[in-house]
Write a protein that binds this DNA or RNA. Sequence first.
DNA 1: CAGAACTTTCAGTAAATATTGAAAGATATT
DNA 2: AATATCTTTCAATATTTACTGAAAGTTCTG
Lengths: 164, 164
Amino acid sequence: MQSSEAKKEFIQVWGSLGSSWGINRTMSSIHALLMSSSKAMSTEEIMEALQISRGNANMNIRALIDWGLVKKRFVPGERKEFFEAGKDIWEIARQIAAERKKRELTPVLQVIDDLKAKEDQSDPHFTKLLNEMQEFTTTLTAVMEKFERSDRNWFFKRLMKLFS
Amino acid sequence: MQSSEAKKEFIQVWGSLGSSWGINRTMSSIHALLMSSSKAMSTEEIMEALQISRGNANMNIRALIDWGLVKKRFVPGERKEFFEAGKDIWEIARQIAAERKKRELTPVLQVIDDLKAKEDQSDPHFTKLLNEMQEFTTTLTAVMEKFERSDRNWFFKRLMKLFS
DNA sequence: CAGAACTTTCAGTAAATATTGAAAGATATT
DNA sequence: AATATCTTTCAATATTTACTGAAAGTTCTG
């Protein structure tokens, strides 16, 4: 499958966007490739399309599966695995938000808790900072959980309404 | 000024959080240091506290100023510059959101526009993807702009109401 | 169960990114 | 206007992160 110029550019852009958000370039490129492909692709095809090694392809496909962004797909009569990405953009956003919440927000809440316990109260300014940060993070977590559970459009509808 | 253990840990955690979001570790460490300091600090003091070189300190302080997270502060009788970070966590979040919108969301909208123009319509699936991505990005941009302009208490109140 | 088809791992290497420190550039001071 | 104080720049270097490819591992097939 030879991609159109537009698809290639899309893959490129998505890759660099990912990398500026702390997600490795290859991982987001594979994601873009699979999103823009209408059929599931094998590891070989991905390697070929992006000109990357087998090890790299394999590792990043696994990472995408881990993030819930890509699924294995068994193709009748084929022995090897095929992969496909979910195509609904709101669903993808929800998945990414949920994962980042789990990976980054939850640990931060934990750390703040620990710090508050350690902190000797000698610096009221710092104590206040920790408290506000805890409040902020807790609220943000709640927002993300709501988003995580909301159905496709409910959340953004509410949000837009809130701001209109 | 010798920081407490808790402050040191806070700086450390904030730094690694930043780096997992594509912001360089030193930049977020300096930010954490300044947030947790009740007085403005000079470049020298920052270098000393974080054990970093002058060049590194200077570059990252400039970046923080660029992001609107840190401000110069002239101290009477002192020739050198002092720096201080805003302390209001909602304000900080707003600033970061606004900057990332400007740096990443706006360019993406531009690219999608270009791609839609280039795309030859031969692949309806890809066309649909681009359209949905455009819709999504536009909505997200609108939400962030609202957040950007809203005043602190208003936003917080509305947000809490959404979840009650 | 031997061999083929495919997947995973990981030590070595390459590439990207961040940091240093010394020199050049400013700006103030006498 | 020479000197001192402070800031910025940037080529060299160090560190971190990502990638490769071959070998080991796994699963399927006849």
